[in-house]
Design a protein around this nucleic acid. Sequence first.
DNA 1: ACCTGAACACCGTTCAAGT
DNA 2: ACCTGAACACCGTTCAAGT
Lengths: 194, 194
Amino acid sequence: MKTSERILESAAALLDAGGTSAVTLRAVGQVSGVSHNAPYKHFVNRDSLLAALATQEFQKLAAAFFAFGQEKVQPLTKLKRALQAFSQYGRDYPGRYQLLFSDPDIAKHEGALSQAAMASFSAFALLVAECQKAGALPAVPTPALAGLLYASVHGLIDLEASGRMKTEKGFMSVTEGIALLLKVLAPEKNEVLQ
Amino acid sequence: MKTSERILESAAALLDAGGTSAVTLRAVGQVSGVSHNAPYKHFVNRDSLLAALATQEFQKLAAAFFAFGQEKVQPLTKLKRALQAFSQYGRDYPGRYQLLFSDPDIAKHEGALSQAAMASFSAFALLVAECQKAGALPAVPTPALAGLLYASVHGLIDLEASGRMKTEKGFMSVTEGIALLLKVLAPEKNEVLQ
DNA sequence: ACCTGAACACCGTTCAAGT
DNA sequence: ACCTGAACACCGTTCAAGT
């Protein structure tokens, strides 16, 4: 395994274990079995290392969305599975999820990272478009509908993780939120919601 | 003006100008006209200073939501104004917004901060409940519906800021997203959407 | 080509001392 | 009670040197 791959792997592990502040070049070096500035031989600096990691993760996400599109099931089932996998990713890899979707420094990057992020959203939008064609989602502009779904699920994941939706009376889970959203979005409510 | 207030004000300014990493105690001290460790006389450490700032901001947000509830207009108009103000806050004070809703270290805090965050969401949920009573929103459980709305708007703000919803074909604005969500949520679609 | 170790500037935090 | 300045450990980054 190449050193650069080991460095990315170490960074991902540290990120999920202790958040972005735990990803110090010294810790990355130690976990990877190299010195604290060996990473500079593979990435221009710490920020660039994190950007490379984010790019890789966005590519995985796009591939996962694409794979759901290939399954031989109803379009709405594909979309539900994709949404489920999306929220599961946020739960399993909170550090990486935060890096991809809520890190302002990472968000500034153009080029490969931005391209990979766009590709992820485009792959997701394809699933939405397919549902619309099948009449399972309303015939509004696809980018708007896909954006709303993407944003809502992200918001649910983010707020669930931060506990910002708790009240005295109750709170909301990501799964419930997605179910409610799909329910209100269904053109024929009684048919789609079992 | 008390030193502790000046410190919080300086921290807020630095936060919006350069993100959380720009809020160093040395910079806060300099902007406040005190030494780099005077903050320790008012807050136990840097994290606690940021938590105090977040608490203050959540209280402002809760007060703003409450104020919209007092206006003499239709319930749905109150809600729309509140959502509009919410997204405007995210645009005007990106650093503070990120601190309140997407900072994992801040999210861990219990006590006053957690209480203030819950109070903000509760105040928002009241506006949603009023819309439901007036028949302007569906009669599903209020925490679920309020949570979905809160999460969706947060997701739209967050993804718009990070540019994660762009595609080759188009992208989505917060305002459009809110409008679309309220449109699909309206029980009598034709009536509510003008 | 890839890596190491020393060095530098910066930061959070602690501590002794000042009014 | 409130503040300051020195000091310490840690971090990103640079640089000269090693294979």
